[in-house]
């Protein structure tokens, strides 16, 4: 019923077939983030090249479908973009997740990540969706 809107096909697809999973070299920074309430965790590496271009986002971790799919979508969105571009996506994604389901998502900015809009209605799951994105933000800061 309600959850139908949360478990979008795209999320299940990314969960079953995660993109870019596995830690890779080379990388500029590596971070490890955990969600202490549920034990979900992620290790993330970022490689930034010339002109602030994100060359690779690699990750490994364990967790629920939401947290794992969010990492996979992030990998697709970030790789090949510039750090600046990706940070504005992170910002929009965070705004959506923290909007208690009342924020109209900007699909132009979010792309596939718009599929997570339904998660915002479940306060207990918002942290799951944000885990990889917060790790990415942290990793980018440390790579500079």
């Amino acid at each position: 019923m309600i959850a139908e809107s949360m478990y979008q096909e795209l999320i299940l697809e990314h969960y079953k077939h995660p993109q870019g999973r596995g830690l890779r070299d080379p990388f500029d920074s590596e971070v490890h983030h955990v969600n202490p309430t549920c034990g979900d965790e992620i290790t993330m590496r970022v490689k930034v090249g010339e002109g602030g271009k994100v060359e690779d986002v690699s990750y490994d971790g364990q967790g629920c479908s939401i947290s794992q799919a969010a990492a996979s979508v992030l990998h697709e969105l970030a790789t090949g973009s510039t750090v600046e571009e990706t940070l504005s996506v992170v910002e929009e994604f965070t705004r959506l997740m923290q909007g208690r389901g009342k924020v109209e998502p900007d699909e132009e900015v979010l792309g596939d990540a718009v599929a997570f809009a339904g998660v915002a209605k479940f306060p207990a799951r918002v942290k799951c969706a944000l885990l990889a994105w917060m790790a990415y933000k942290d990793a980018v800061v440390r790579s500079a």
Partner: peptide, 21 residues
């Protein structure tokens, strides 16, 4: 993952269980 189990049990069946550690 247990979180997914718990969420679907709750949302679709009204079954309240605990998930996590």
């Amino acid at each position: 993952h247990p979180h997914d189990v718990g969420q679907i049990l709750d949302d679709e069946f009204g079954v309240a269980v605990r998930v996590g550690h």
